[in-house]
Design a protein around this nucleic acid. Structure first.
Lengths: 161, 161
DNA sequence: CGGATATCAGACCTACTGACATTG
DNA sequence: CCAATGTCAGTATGTCTGATATCC
């Protein structure tokens, strides 16, 4: 490949990075403005936790902190309300006494499932109102890209090329 | 209307909404973890302001608050550091004494331009490291979708179609 | 003891709500 | 006087850093 991935390509990447950052911030602000993506009384952080527990079974706070890219303390704060609400449980690790396993309860599953049904949130209506079926497909791809970036593993020396 | 846009379609939208919310949160956390999308010392909120000023000329705090979907106070907080750094200026509105026009300075333009060149930020490297040219195209589409959602205007009764 | 885990306490960052001064 | 704009003060949220207790 000639100069395709040269300086111009790089600049485009930087441009995309800035645009993505700004877009991320604006949508987040809008979601706050519309107060409540969820209407369940739980924050997105807490729902993200439920999401992980649902998909990947019982996990420790440390594991959750790693996958969510926050500190253990932040996880603990999300865990407390969820536990109080009976959506998750905490129990001892079978072999390692230091660890506490966090798991989702049937009630937690039900709440998460009901979220996937709730059609009254602002975001759901916004998607329905602004997107064609083709856009919807693109949105699914977009979510995958965001998740991939969130979990990107930039090994030691980034090979610039 | 048959059952095409019935419960199943809705449920998928709700699913997408939840997945998008969670993905948004995770990428944001990752960005924080990698401390600094920008490396300029300015926050994304502030860069978003520069972005708007660059594209849409002098604006009032109220206008900026509207497009950024935050309160005027939040705008004021972003404006202060930018003004102190000489990236923007504030001046009186020609006809309305209540208003204060905020405008970007040449220095502000230069800083924003340099951002579009900086290839060393985590996000830029993450994009380069994880995305094929095809993915990159999809990312551009993704940004457009996010921006469209952020600015979605859900008129009174949402017209599903 | 040292490494890992979890918790407690204090601080910060960003944005919000409420109250107020000024202008039109 | 009322509406709009902008500013000041106090508050809330989610997260972070630092210190401590516990377990392997």
């Amino acid at each position: 490949m000639g100069r395709v991935d040269g300086i111009e390509g790089k600049r485009d990447t930087a441009k995309a990075a800035v645009r993505l950052s700004v877009a991320l911030k604006r949508l987040r602000s809008r979601l706050r403005e519309e107060s409540g993506v969820t209407s369940t009384g739980f924050t997105i952080s807490q729902l993200a936790l439920l999401d992980h527990l649902l998909k990947q079974g019982p996990l420790t706070a440390a594991s959750l902190a790693a996958v969510e890219h926050v500190t253990q303390q932040a996880i603990a704060q999300s865990v407390a309300p969820l536990k109080a609400a009976g959506l998750i449980t905490t129990g001892p690790h079978p072999t390692d006494g230091r660890k506490v396993l966090i798991d989702i309860t049937p009630a937690g599953r039900r709440l998460f499932e009901s979220l996937l049904e709730s059609r009254e949130t602002w975001l759901v209506r916004a998607i329905d109102a602004t997107m064609s079926p083709k856009d919807r497909a693109a949105l699914d791809v977009a979510v995958e890209l965001l998740e991939r970036l969130a979990d990107a593993d930039l090994s030691p020396e980034v090979v610039i090329r």
